[in-house]
Nucleic acid binder design. Sequence first.
DNA 1: TTAGTTTTTTATCATAAGTAAAATTTTATT
DNA 2: AATAAAATTTTACTTATGATAAAAAACTAA
Lengths: 187, 187
Amino acid sequence: MSIDQILQQPSPLPTASLDQLKEHITEQHFPKGHILLQADKIESVIYFIKKGIARAYSPTDDADITFWFGKEGDPVLSMKSYVANEKGYENVELLEDSELYVLPTRELRQLFEQDIHIANWGRRLAEKELIRTEERLICRQVRTATERYKDLLNDHPDLIRRVQLGHIASYLGITQVSLSRIRAELR
Amino acid sequence: MSIDQILQQPSPLPTASLDQLKEHITEQHFPKGHILLQADKIESVIYFIKKGIARAYSPTDDADITFWFGKEGDPVLSMKSYVANEKGYENVELLEDSELYVLPTRELRQLFEQDIHIANWGRRLAEKELIRTEERLICRQVRTATERYKDLLNDHPDLIRRVQLGHIASYLGITQVSLSRIRAELR
DNA sequence: TTAGTTTTTTATCATAAGTAAAATTTTATT
DNA sequence: AATAAAATTTTACTTATGATAAAAAACTAA
């Protein structure tokens, strides 16, 4: 996915502003298993996924809990770092060899103060993420695990293929065994 | 809570920008039980709670599911309407006689395009809401119902007093009976 | 291919949470 | 204060999900 396409996703940007952003963006490649963001660390860049797939998880005593997946076009950032300059609660791990666009938050913050189009772009970015997050929260409360699995199958069939079921189960808030049961019933 | 205090919450604003915002804000009072926002409707205003308490819920086949509480200082809006100009999925109901500040989204959108400070203010507003929502989502996945109840008791003790337990249980994602059991154990 | 590792499924048992209904407490109203 | 209505707790029973262990299947890499 091209950087232009990705940047225009939150909202269209005038060419000048787009170029401003692109000036600070570089490309990096990482192997499967690489940890992009670390909990307990103030992260200083945000990524956009050009190619690949990632998961965010909270490392707890026993098992990690996966609560987010990102793929081509999605932004990857520690919200806590980006918004509050505080340590986050998530690790982000690459689940495939991946290609990423990298933008330092320091530069981005400066652009927010200088360019109203970029400020509004950043606003739209946060707002769209907010809607996605809110939808997941509500969905989690309203729908059963089986329904949520079906939804996922519908909306992101590739995810099921690309990500191992343990992570999917954790994301759905159930055990892997339960997910297996659900899958068996649907067959 | 004063409108100045509330508006400065997402991020400090220069006086001129603050005044611009305030020009479009009016105050309204509503009784307990009043429905502020309706699902299946594109809402055209956002509220800030001066005094009172509200809950957002998704009306489903059998029981409503509460997924958000707001009190003094909190913004109340249908994110879907505000961000995407689409119908939302939530009703918002007042749980007490309340006093609200009202800001039409049409005017706000205009200000976003005209004033970079307001644009960044709107960005911070969305970002902070995003963090709150993300935290709730993760908390939901990571912590048990009992822990989440204790957290709530800790962070918002007034909520337990002001809101009936049926709503709290729904918010925690458990039945009222379960919540009763939890409370009994803590005694 | 073969051995080794990881992932997924199946089976069994234990437990936490749901449902329904009754009992109690709290709140509101005349 | 007395009654009614609403909210909360308790009880008994049922069901769904989790934990654990082990078998089966699917990948990996020599």
